[in-house]
Design a protein around this nucleic acid. Structure first.
Lengths: 193, 193
DNA sequence: AGCTTTCACTAACCTACATCAAGGAGATTC
DNA sequence: GAATCTCCTTGATGTAGGTTAGTGAAAGCT
């Protein structure tokens, strides 16, 4: 049914076809146009989303109106306000489409039932969450240790697919700097090598 | 056997006493004196550690010899080089005792076997990892959004037990600033309220 | 008790990045 | 095809926190 997602799951756990299909049956397909939202602050977040097609961002908007992007998601990534989703709190983040996108949503309650029926899926999400946790640590370390231009080069090396798709503003914001600074950094890097 | 750890587990999952004891049987108790290491860069990391008593830090040391603390752990916390542990890579971090400490170690391979026998434990660690993942996101957001003095106040509010136990150098380092700056920040905060 | 090491603090100067302001090249709209 | 946006770039100036350097108090060691 979803070739892409099937590969995504089978890369992590092995599973008979019927259990995979049971999982597919729990997903709801949603389309989001560019600049539309999947989640807004104060929303009740019961769903996490797998990206079939497109590009989205999860960000916090502070009191001064500044955005702070904590995550991008393109094909094959999961996105949500995970704090709200896991801890059953009102959303603090926006999840917004940067391009017209198609996502598959799965509900927390439905996921809980699935875990009881097929513990393998608990394993799948444990492993995915572990990888996300480790990636988060890497990002923290990068912010603590590296200069903006090193972080920019790392970003390009780690997420070339994202770097090509989103504009300077988004990359700068993710790196924790202003677009003007990113512009200057790019020029510096061009002059050197 | 380990009252403290028993509570720690039962807060997250329910479990019959015999399964809990099976888990306890898999743990190895280790003592580490202040300034001694549980993990060093290039080590093969097969173990994660639960802190029974004491205080430790996990940090990266860059080429210039600067430490960058990514985690503290006091009683009831887990610590390791999680990237190395989960992805079976050589360690990049030091895990070092800040105080004389006692930890319980559990091996990755043994944990895998436990997951197969008692899937409930896969659930336990999924939930713990999820919470750690969410906490990591919070920290990223804090670095992106807040000034050093706001982050300091947050740190004191979130981890009062740690703030009281470790010295200025450690707190500043965790916040991503220098001890001199923390000193200035503290003075500023005293003058204001 | 004396000596050394560690730690918190202060002050003067420095730097990476932010802020403010402006211009120009491509899209997009009417 | 002019008008409006959006996005990238550049320059001048500001600032939070870094760097360097020195002091004194407390803690550990012999």
């Amino acid at each position: 049914m979803y070739e892409q997602l099937e590969q995504h799951v089978l890369k992590v756990i092995s599973l008979p076809a019927d259990q995979l299909n049971e999982f597919f049956g729990l997903l709801r397909k949603t389309e989001v146009k560019k600049k539309q939202f999947l989640i807004r602050p104060r929303d009740t977040v019961t769903t996490e989303y797998y990206v079939l097609k497109g590009c989205l961002k999860a960000y916090y908007m502070d009191e001064t109106g500044e955005e702070h992007i904590i995550q991008f998601a393109i094909e094959d990534w999961w996105i949500s306000d995970f704090e709200a989703f896991f801890h059953t709190k009102p959303a603090k983040l926006y999840v917004e489409a940067i391009e017209d996108s198609v996502v598959l949503g799965i509900d927390r309650d439905i996921l809980e039932i699935l875990y009881r029926r097929i513990p393998r899926f608990e394993r799948f999400f444990r492993i995915k969450t572990t990888a996300a946790f480790v990636a988060g640590r890497e990002r923290i370390l990068a912010i603590l240790e590296k200069s903006a231009s090193e972080r920019y080069l790392d970003f390009c090396a780690t997420y070339p697919a994202i770097e090509k798709r989103v504009n300077n503003y988004h990359i700068a914001n993710y790196l924790g700097i202003k677009p003007e600074s990113l512009s200057r950094i790019r020029r510096q890097l061009e002059l050197k090598p």
